[in-house]
Amino acid sequence: MSDSILVTSLDEALKWGTGKSLWPFTFGLACCAIEMMSAMGSDYDWARFGSDVFRDSPRHSDLMIVSGTVTKKMAPRIRRLYDQMAFPKFVISMGACASAGGPYVRGYSVVDGVDQVVPVDVYVYGCPPRPEALIQALKMLQDRIVAGRVKH
């Protein structure tokens, strides 16, 4: 009885800690990446929400923001980068392109949705989504991590 209480509360603490210390991966694909940079930049400053340190290596980061169009040539590389990230890892699919192909869905070399490549936790709509929307997605992801409703 006392065992399980200890384990549960440690688990809660871990989840809380994971949610509040997400390290995103510097990974820009297309136009949405510029809005991602705006979210990092002076006006929106998303460091306020406990997701400060943008990491340049997949091995140091636990949040991948797929910010842009996923082409067929890039998709296997995205998968490889995702595989290189350490657990626990989360994915935000930013923008219409990453979520479903966006305006390029009729094209011959565009993957319609990054969910075919990596498991996605939060989708953000918009072309491009405003930085506020991305910040909302981050908050949503944090809530989900705390509640234990994430894919990995």
């Binding site: 040539k73 009729r106 094209g107």
Partner: peptide, 11 residues
């Protein structure tokens, strides 16, 4: 190059 080839001309 070509990792962001989005078929703009064709579309």
């Amino acid at each position: 190059i070509g990792y962001l080839h989005r078929n703009a001309e064709k579309l």
